[in-house]
């Protein structure tokens, strides 16, 4: 029983980690704590519905459609909302992302109707027994793809030239401008990446559950994940995602499904009071 719970917790946690990674990329680049990340997840799920069910695209093309669509939307959000507000007080920035999520939710419900939809993809959906555990292939695929994406982006930031320039821009906008980096383009790219990672998470979450705007709450679990792991830390986001997934599954199995949120946020509160820079973060508080 415990093993089963841990398996699904880690699998879901991998998806949360992926969404949280997107969140941290945005946070590091533009200092925006993005409350719309949950709706980005929803958007990904609906992009998948559009590509697969409405347009009937073949699966590889559908994936391309989702990634391109999400990247474009991320750039659009940055250009329309984030750039005009740069340098404003923190509440304005938080609120604009909240307002964005309200607008997105309303827009999606108007376009697609408020009822949920099922998403079916050619991904394997069966299960098999392994070491006494019932392993769902979909969970396994989701986890594997999440880890692949996280690895790919880790390598991208570490070893490519664009990744280096993005890290430089995130370190200091002014210094990067002086060094000749196109900071604006880097920030736009960060939003594109952040949105895309959330959308990939949405593709899987939409398939594991039902595609509806309610997925936002699940997507928003990236927030506590990021804080628990350490605001500015990429490995921290992934660790935080895994922890949140495991706690969620443990709480809903052994206490009650409704207690999952409170357990996660209780841990968040403890972390904030005891170790505000997070598990893997660096002790440089008051910056944000």
């Amino acid at each position: 029983m415990l093993g089963q719970v841990l398996f699904s917790g880690l699998a879901l946690g991998s998806i949360y980690g992926l969404v949280a990674l997107g969140f941290v990329v945005i946070l590091k680049a533009t200092d925006v704590f993005n409350f719309a990340q949950g709706m980005f997840v929803v958007c990904g799920a609906y992009l998948a519905v559009t590509a697969l069910s409405l347009l009937g695209l073949p699966f590889p093309l559908a994936i391309l459609f989702i990634i391109l669509g999400a990247a474009l939307m991320g750039m659009g959000v940055h250009a329309a909302l984030i750039r005009p507000l740069s340098g404003r007080p923190i509440l304005s920035i938080i609120m604009v992302t909240i307002a964005l999520s309200i607008v997105m939710r309303a827009g999606i419900e108007i376009l697609y109707g408020p009822a949920g939809r099922t998403l079916s993809t050619p991904l394997p959906s069966g299960g098999f027994l392994f070491a006494g555990l019932r392993i769902s292939q979909l969970h396994l695929t989701a986890a594997a793809v999440s880890w692949l994406c996280m690895l790919a982006f880790g390598l991208f930031f570490r070893f490519t030239s664009v990744g280096l320039l993005m890290r430089a821009a995130a370190d200091s906008h002014e210094a990067a401008t002086i060094a000749g980096v196109k900071v604006d383009a880097m920030n736009r790219l960060a939003w594109a990446i952040g949105f895309t990672l959330a959308a990939i998470g949405g593709l899987f979450l939409g398939q594991l559950q039902i595609v509806s705007t309610e997925l936002e709450t699940i997507g928003l679990l990236a927030l506590p994940a990021v804080v628990i792991g350490g605001m500015q830390s990429i490995p921290g986001a992934i660790l935080g995602g895994l922890l949140v997934g495991v706690i969620e599954q443990l709480a809903s199995t052994y206490i009650s499904p409704k207690s999952a949120d409170v357990m996660i946020y209780a841990l968040l509160l403890v972390i904030l009071l005891v170790r505000p820079w997070g598990l893997l973060g660096q002790k440089a508080i008051n910056r944000v």
Partner: peptide, 24 residues
């Protein structure tokens, strides 16, 4: 009380955590 220890965004998050605790 958390405002004694954390500020800005961290404090916002602590109020959010309080929300979930009370809601539960």
């Amino acid at each position: 009380l958390p405002s004694l220890r954390v500020q800005g965004l961290y404090f916002v998050l602590s109020t959010m955590a309080v929300h979930y605790l009370v809601a539960y």
